[in-house]
Design a protein around this nucleic acid. Structure first.
Lengths: 112, 112
DNA sequence: CGATAACGCTACAGTATTAGTAGCGATATT
DNA sequence: AATATCGCTACTAATACTGTAGCGTTATCG
């Protein structure tokens, strides 16, 4: 699967609009999950594997390559960590943490 | 693939934390894209299929079922549309539109 | 009424992506 | 020299997604 570079053709769009590249990226298994986990702090490859309970090393490596090329993640002597850009992305999606609680609560309610 | 209900075990987490269910959902092909497209206005099944250039009807229907159960999307006489909860989710992720432009710009710069 | 068209959606085969497991080559520690 | 950990690769099996055809239903029109 080609890395969704903004400006190039991606899944769901021939226009190359950056938002479409981003949606393609985030729609890949574990992409957002890795960003979320890395915000908890930098981690070695194997640590990260453990945080993402069910991810296979091959896929983890594939995603990390994509995230590195797209400059959201970098590998430093102390392990993988979010870049400044990566933190920027996280700060946008971070409200999802609280929101998901309200959402869960509402689904529960409607079951009653 | 089981629908990621908050409270139940999902990909990447045995704890059932709502955020993990949400990350599982959003990590599925087209899930976020559908929400994004529906925010442009409600659409019939076939309209939605066209907006999402490359989605197959079987997958579109699978995702819509999930989004309906999770109360983010509903089918009305005038077509599929976001629920109030769905709009809530969109309002969180909507800054990604502008952010993706900065991101695209930065990646370009670094190529030089 | 009969023909045509559009709707939401299903069926199914083919292809692409992900999971799961074993282990390599490199570096560090004992 | 033996052991341990690291990042990561290789490979197969399982699963998810695409692409195409078309079903059953409802609406429109002559």
């Amino acid at each position: 699967m080609p890395i969704p570079m903004p400006g190039e053709q991606v899944r769901g769009s021939k226009t190359g609009k950056p938002i479409m590249a981003l949606l393609d990226l985030l729609g890949r298994t574990w992409a957002l999950g890795i960003v979320w986990q890395l915000n908890q702090g930098s981690a070695t490859f194997r640590e990260l594997q453990q945080r993402c309970e069910q991810i296979s090393p091959s896929l983890l490596n594939t995603r990390l390559k994509e995230l590195k090329v797209l400059q959201l993640v970098e590998l430093t002597p102390s392990g993988y960590q979010l870049t400044q850009t990566g933190h920027g992305l996280f700060s946008i999606v971070s409200p999802l943490g609280e929101w998901s609680l309200l959402w869960a609560n509402q689904i529960k309610k409607d079951k009653v």
